[in-house]
Write a protein that binds this DNA or RNA. Structure first.
Lengths: 342, 342
DNA sequence: GCCGATCGTCGAAGCGCTTCGATTGCGGCC
DNA sequence: GGCCGCAATCGAAGCGCTTCGACGATCGGC
């Protein structure tokens, strides 16, 4: 492994000149730059990350804390991860992968050891124990999600309240007045993952504002969960004509169950789902959906981290506006057609 | 951030003594150890990772190269990742996440910069360009998967050939003689991911050995892919009574399609799937399956990397034996019952 | 009662890099 | 024509840690 002084010797300059060519922090003449770069290429020189980190206290590594065994769909998590890693690379950073179940210890380890420049945390909970830990750390951090007290912390997420309102608005615009929410599994609410309650809050609020009749039920995973949830909905709101589904995992069994019981989508029941685009189009019925903009959220999280690193102040909170894409799961509702009761 | 010399001063010893307490490389008296540890705890000292890497040329970081947008199911990838991260932690290592689409550059970057101690690569292809790159790198590496020329490279994977044989054996044991393979999507074969061809090879070989009548077809993703694949199978092997499905993503639409066309599982058609346990039990019919031991593979990959780091020679290749778990998708076949033709 | 081993500890030399003065030419200005 | 200022480069001082050789003290053996 050649070192910077090998390069310097080969190029006939001093170590510091090589360093400045690499960092661009001081002007170096074009000819010298060329010689240095040639030497670097010829020797196959790579600066030693540890030495660099030691001297500059910059690591070019971002920590990403991902949830492991959670109730949120794995492909969605992976989309966030992909987005973060890709965005990080555009800033010449790599990503160190931590798991949420290491809790506070993982954060303190990588931060204390100066292994990373900044941290990005996914799956933030209402009263997340990791939030106070972030205060004890010298590196900046960005949350994907939203704790109860987001004061002074950079957060990025989809505006779930607005998304819920948008879904209801869309259905109301199609003449639906009796609408049910199929929510995430109860475990998600219990854990205090706030996207669930933010969505529910937006749903309730918009329901009142629009004068709709609605019910909301969480939905356990699996076929049985879906069946139970549908039963509760039918019992609580007879004649329901549309569903807002905020639960990716429930979608396949839900569609299957509806089909099995002879309810056609969208003729008998309209659906608006909240899910990534690809799951919306991958199902038997192409679903009208509010997109989960994982890529955008991940990218913004990294950008925010970089801004923080450069000392730029950034808006504490970024709530991305929802986008509803119309597909084949929403029909216009006419009162008489579905005047049934369950 | 306190440094080792702060700790030394606080404990009234020299820096080197602190270092030896931490590393255990030289004997230090119990009292001294106690004082040093107390000082460490009190000051909240964490060794600086960069400084440590510089002085010891050990980083305590493993690189993990994951495929991003591939045709292999995301949850399965995530299981490997989880296993690797968890196992790495038991060896006090962290994991740097690289994406396969960075290709050779990513490997060279992290290896050249001495950011990691060893590399673990997933989704290895027949003639993977990354293999030669590994030779130019000073760090050891472990493959999850199997290239054509595995000579001298540490590889870990499920024994897919044996798995295929086991699946056929299981079905043959239930009296089935006309069996079709629903393979991965054609893209997987084209990419040269060898697990597909190893499975197919094992399938063909066992089919002949057992005197079975079989066909094999790749299966495109989605409902249409499944439909086409089934049509081809019915045309090519009329009266087929069992399916071996080596394609997790196809399972849900496959079951749905069968149900839609009135073919019951297992009464009319038996199925053995190759997939992780949780997808096997999460479907409408609990599938008899050959497990994909992601956790075990990931763990062994990390162990192997650690052995390599410690200079221990390890068996170049680890092929894990298959395990078939019987569930509800396999029925005993009686000639007369399914004497139909398509 | 002396010698060599052994144990526990210290000091100092790096590891490879960044960065902050300092230094050297040079052209332009009064 | 001397001086100032700038552009381009160099030298050296660390950054925080590991590790090797050295050293004093203790101890058993003869």
């Amino acid at each position: 492994m050649p070192t910077i002084s090998d390069v310097a010797r080969a190029a006939g300059v001093s170590m510091s000149t090589v360093s400045y060519v690499l960092s661009g922090r001081r002007p170096i003449s074009a000819e010298t730059q060329a010689r240095v770069k040639a030497a670097i290429a010829e020797l196959g020189y790579h600066p030693h990350a540890g030495a660099r980190a030691l001297a500059s206290s910059r690591t070019s590594v971002l920590a990403l804390v991902v949830p492991l065994r959670v109730d949120v769909s794995v492909p969605v998590i992976m989309q966030f991860v992909t987005a973060v890693v890709t965005a990080a690379r555009t800033y010449n950073h790599d990503v160190l992968l931590l798991t949420k179940d290491e809790g506070t210890a993982g954060l303190e380890r990588v931060a204390g050891a100066t292994m990373v420049d900044a941290l990005i945390l996914m799956d933030v909970e209402r009263d997340d124990v990791r939030i106070p830990a972030l205060g004890r750390i010298k590196q900046p951090s960005v949350l994907i999600g939203f704790p109860d007290d987001a004061a002074g912390i950079a957060c990025v997420d989809l505006d779930f309240a607005a998304t819920a309102a948008e879904c209801l608005g869309h259905l109301a615009g199609h003449g639906h007045t009796r609408i049910a929410l199929v929510g995430p599994s109860p475990a998600v609410y219990e854990r205090g993952t706030t996207y669930a309650s933010r969505f529910l809050g937006g749903f309730t609020e918009a329901s009142e504002r629009l004068g709709l009749e609605t019910v909301a039920h969480p939905c356990e995973p699996g076929v049985r969960g879906v069946r139970d949830c549908l039963a509760q909905i039918d019992a609580g709101l007879p004649g329901v004509s549309a569903l807002v589904v905020h639960n990716e995992e429930a979608l396949p069994p839900l569609l299957e169950e509806l089909r099995g019981s002879g309810r056609r989508v969208p003729e008998d029941l309209s659906i608006v789902a909240v899910c990534p685009r690809d799951v919306a189009v991958g199902l038997p019925v192409r679903l009208t959906s509010a997109d989960i903009p994982a890529h955008e959220v991940g990218t913004i999280a990294v950008e925010t981290a970089m801004n923080l690193l450069d000392g730029r102040r950034t808006p504490g909170t970024r709530l991305l506006p929802p986008t509803i894409v119309e597909r084949d799961s929403c029909a216009t509702h006419h009162e008489e057609i579905s005047a049934s009761s369950g």
